[in-house]
Simulated scan of single mutants.
Amino acid sequence: MSVLAAMNLPPSIISILLLIASNVFMTVAWYGHLKYAHSKPWLLAALLSWGIALFEYLLQVPANRIGIGVYTLPQLKIIQEVISLSVFIPFAVFYMNQPLKLDFLWAGLCLLGAVYFMFRGA
């Protein structure tokens, strides 16, 4: 975080960048084991996922603490959801070899609607 602060970025951008990094770890922790460790015992997959999720929390907690100073709680949550889908789709397509579907676009448009409602009048 100190690197981002040293770059004189506004808290709104620092929060978003930390949430993006956090979501990369979150996505890998939640779904990455399905590619290579799906035949391993679930306890091993859970422990591996928890280890990865630690890094998610080390980024997510400061991201939310910084973000709450510039966003409302609902705005912060909807930013998180948009970032989550934005990270998940490339992960699913490029890492997990899932087909790119038009449904991803429709889901993204629904989230844009949610963003509109959370930020209108802000």
Rank of each mutant, 00 (worst) to 15 (best):
L73E: 12
T72E: 01
K40T: 14
L18Q: 09
Y71P: 00
A21N: 05
V24D: 05
I78E: 04
E56K: 05
R120S: 09
M7H: 13
A122D: 14
P11C: 05
K77G: 04
F55D: 06
M96H: 05
P10G: 11
G67F: 00
I68K: 13
V93I: 13
W30M: 12
V28S: 02
V82N: 03
M7E: 11
A114Y: 08
T27K: 02
D103W: 10
F104I: 06
G113V: 08
I68D: 11
F55Q: 07
V24A: 01
S39W: 14
V93E: 06
A45E: 11
S39D: 15
F55Y: 11
K77M: 07
A29M: 11
N64V: 11
P90L: 02
L85I: 13
L112C: 03
P99M: 05
A29D: 10
I13T: 13
R65P: 00
M118N: 08
L58D: 03
E56R: 06
I78V: 07
H38K: 14
F91P: 00
A21Q: 02
F117C: 00
N8K: 06
L34Q: 11
V115L: 15
A5R: 13
V3Y: 12
L73P: 07
W50V: 15
P90S: 03
M26N: 12
L85R: 06
L59T: 10
F25E: 05
T72Q: 02
V93L: 06
P99R: 09
Q80L: 14
S2H: 10
A46I: 14
L54Y: 15
I83R: 03
I52F: 10
